[in-house]
């Protein structure tokens, strides 16, 4: 055979390639910067916070933003900025953990269900139907009451209800991919089921999930607030964005700043995840170089 070839291009680390392509997109950079600032401020909150976030100061209650209190104070006179900073530690963790937890289980159940079909699919889907039949919030309250307070239990309680959505989205996407000839071709070269799922099916069907994840993060934060509202989950005087937002409801007419600031922060988290998620989906697709 004639060797008429020119030099082969050098193989690069796949992870670095995706990262490079990710940060070529301005939206991803913007999202990453927002997320980085929020994360850093949460980590260093005790150092940056100008006041003790649980300290009551009834004389200065319900003040609007001023130089003394940059984000104003709440109904007990606590400094909102300090509470927002400290609350970020909890809220960011909840948002990310809920997504991570339900994603892992959603991907496992969705892949098994979509790839194998038949009775496996039936079993998993009927089980998820049962879980789905219970309203999400009710399920979370039930589990939370059953398991007790604590970070891990709260995450578990909030995640179980959203596994269904991830599993179903992935299942639908996989059922489309599974019929492709390259899946059959993989079987003829003796690829195991695990290999076919991990390296052929999932990379081609995961895209719809990425968008869903970015939205799931906000849901996690807000549901956590509902839990603490009825006395489950995190307890006052601990700070948390969702709880601050729902607590501000009664003051929304006269003191809107109480709701606006935590609201903006939750929106920023969602926005940053969304920007990164969209760009990540594109960066992972070799057709959109």
């Amino acid at each position: 055979m004639a060797n008429n070839s020119t030099a082969a291009p050098k193989k690069q680390n796949q992870f670095l390639v995706v990262l490079k392509r990710l940060f070529k997109r301005k939206t991803a950079v913007a999202g990453a910067i927002i997320l980085l600032i929020l994360t850093l401020s949460a980590i260093f909150a005790p150092l940056i916070a100008p006041y003790n976030y649980t300290e009551l100061n009834v004389k200065e209650r319900l003040q609007g933003p001023s130089l003394r209190h940059l984000c104003g104070t709440d109904e007990f006179g606590r400094d909102l900025l300090s509470r927002l900073l400290m609350g970020g530690r909890y809220s960011l963790r909840v948002g990310i953990s809920v997504v991570a937890f339900s994603l892992v289980f959603g991907v496992i159940l969705g892949s098994l269900s979509g790839y194998f079909g038949g009775w496996v699919d039936n079993l998993i889907m009927r089980f998820l139907d049962i879980v789905h039949a219970i309203p999400g919030m009710l399920l979370a309250i039930m589990l939370s009451a059953l398991l007790g307070n604590g970070f891990g239990n709260t995450i578990l309680a909030l995640s179980v209800g959203s596994i269904n959505g991830y599993a179903r989205t992935l299942r639908a996407s996989i059922m489309r991919v599974r019929k492709a000839e390259y899946i059959e071709a993989a079987a003829t070269i003796k690829a195991s089921n695990a290999r076919i799922i991990m390296s052929h099916v999932l990379p081609n069907s995961i895209a719809p999930l990425i968008v869903q994840c970015t939205m799931g993060c906000a849901n996690g934060i807000l549901s956590a607030a509902s839990l603490s509202y009825i006395g489950l989950g995190i307890q006052p005087p601990e700070a948390e964005w969702g709880a601050m937002l729902s607590g501000a409801r009664s003051y929304i007419r006269d003191y809107p700043h109480m709701g606006i600031f935590p609201g903006i922060l939750i929106a920023l988290v969602v926005l940053s995840f969304n920007l990164i998620g969209d760009a990540l989906r594109d960066a992972l697709d070799p057709k959109l170089k």
């Binding site: 390259y182 059959e184 003829t188 390296s199 992972l284 057709k287």
Partner: peptide
């Protein structure tokens, strides 16, 4: 499996687009 192989009709669908 090794001994018996197949070449599919459509090379547009028999290759994994992400490999």
């Amino acid at each position: 499996r090794d001994k018996l192989q197949i070449i599919f009709q459509d090379p547009y669908s028999s290759l994994n687009p992400r490999k």
